[in-house]
Simulated assay, not measured.
Amino acid sequence: MFYVFPNPQAIAEYVSGLLIAQIQKKNNAVLGLATGSTMEPVYAKLCEQVAQQNVDVSGLTTFNLDEYIGLGSDHPQSYRYYMRQHLFNRLAFVQHRTFLPDGLCADSLQQCEQYSRQIQQAGHIDLQLLGIGNNGHIGFNEPGTSFASRTHVVPLTEQTRIDNSRFFDSLDEVPTQAITLGLQDIMESKQIILIATGTNKAQIMAELYESPVSEQLPASVIKSHPNALVLLDELAAQFLPADLCNVAVV
């Protein structure tokens, strides 16, 4: 389940290959996408390899994990803006099949119910990408979130806001709430790939490795998934027992 790569670029090449294989196997696949600096090399490599191999992405449907409440799609720190910059505007995605929560919606609770329902109507997610927060959150599902949760509104913890403040001019500008895909929605994905890179993720990856499946560490839920991979670079894996990790062949 845990695979260690030399660096983020090696992970990006491996994950891009998995994504392309999924698309070639099922040209109308449903992909679950994540944002953040961890995903940037993945999307850059995917754009490069799709162009090189002339892969058709026009049949894909995508659902993103989350969005800030209070940010419109044109705000530079919204996740819709991120996805356009790093993926959607660089490849031939059909825009009406790229789904993210609307941070400016009038009724966030209704939207949450609709979002989970849209994923179910699409046949669930074929391949879900995940990052991990320093407290073990996936999406914005903070410690204590029910494993039975569907898409919901969450108040962002102070630590999560501090962690994300590097993308804003100040902590005051970081939204205090977000809409996030629920843990049950995530677990209904047919395949899950969690990626962690860098020294700042080493401690939480050690905790994830050692933890039982517990709602106090949301990412631990993927240990009970039948088709989940955890991909780390050497820096993120530095506190894991070397003999207990599978070393990736790249």
Results as ranks from 00 to 15, higher is better:
Q120R: 15
M205T: 02
V249L: 15
L171C: 06
E173K: 15
E173N: 14
P6D: 09
N141S: 04
S170W: 12
S224Q: 11
I179S: 01
A242I: 14
I132P: 02
N54T: 15
Q77S: 09
L18M: 12
F168S: 02
A92V: 13
G72Q: 08
H96W: 11
L129E: 03
T35P: 04
N164T: 07
Y14V: 04
K201W: 01
L127A: 05
I11L: 00
N141D: 04
Q85Y: 13
E210Q: 14
F99S: 03
A242W: 13
N28E: 13
A202K: 05
V94M: 14
N64Y: 06
T38S: 00
D169N: 15
G123V: 10
Q238Y: 12
T157E: 05
Q184T: 11
A44E: 11
Q203S: 15
V30P: 06
L46N: 00
L91Y: 07
I125M: 00
N200C: 14
R84M: 12
S189V: 03
A206T: 08
Y68V: 05
L18Q: 10
V30Q: 01
R161F: 09
T38E: 01
H124C: 15
G32I: 03
Y3H: 13
A106D: 14
G59W: 04
Q114W: 10
G70A: 09
D233S: 05
G182A: 04
L240R: 08
S224P: 07
S214V: 07
D233E: 08
Q118P: 10
L232H: 02
F168C: 08
K223H: 11
S37W: 02
D107G: 05
E215H: 12
N135P: 06
Q22D: 11
A196D: 04
R150C: 14
L31I: 07
P226D: 07
